[in-house]
Simulated scan of single mutants.
Amino acid sequence: MFDLLAVSADTAHHVMQYLAVPDPGSGEAPPGSEKILKILKWAAWGVSAACVVGIFGCAAKMANSHRRGEGGEHAMGLAYVMGACVLAGSASGIVGALI
């Protein structure tokens, strides 16, 4: 009985070895990937600049609304811009967690 269990466990182990998904680790960057990283850095800079411009735009709306005595409709725009800032700042962390 124990021999049958040992053979079954050994067979299952060998079958699982062949069916296992290979783990490539963190991978290796291909030649020329420095150019891709440069483009990503430019895009990150552009997104950061857009976030700053968005916050300036919300500040201008807030000042204009305060001057006219209106309510805080601009608060939702500021919330969207702040959400975009958080998402842009944590993008590499999110991707790293998913990979």
Rank of each mutant, 00 (worst) to 15 (best):
59 A>K: 08
34 E>D: 07
68 R>C: 06
44 A>G: 05
36 I>D: 07
16 M>H: 06
83 G>A: 01
73 E>G: 11
99 I>E: 11
70 E>R: 02
5 L>A: 11
28 E>C: 15
13 H>K: 08
68 R>H: 13
56 F>M: 15
9 A>C: 02
93 G>R: 08
4 L>R: 14
17 Q>N: 10
47 V>C: 05
37 L>Q: 12
80 Y>C: 11
42 W>Y: 12
81 V>P: 00
10 D>N: 06
55 I>V: 14
93 G>F: 08
57 G>F: 03
88 A>I: 02
26 S>L: 13
8 S>F: 04
57 G>A: 08
76 M>I: 13
69 G>K: 04
48 S>G: 13
62 M>R: 05
51 C>F: 05
13 H>G: 08
61 K>M: 12
72 G>W: 06
72 G>V: 05
2 F>M: 14
4 L>N: 09
77 G>Y: 02
1 M>D: 10
27 G>F: 04
36 I>V: 15
5 L>Y: 06
8 S>Y: 05
93 G>W: 07
83 G>R: 00
79 A>T: 03
60 A>I: 05
63 A>I: 02
86 V>S: 12
79 A>Q: 08
88 A>T: 00
53 V>F: 13
57 G>P: 01
33 S>M: 11
34 E>W: 04
28 E>N: 12
23 D>W: 03
98 L>Q: 06
41 K>S: 13
12 A>T: 07
35 K>I: 12
81 V>H: 02
6 A>H: 09
69 G>L: 01
89 G>K: 02
54 G>F: 00
33 S>G: 10
63 A>H: 00
12 A>E: 04
17 Q>C: 13
9 A>D: 04
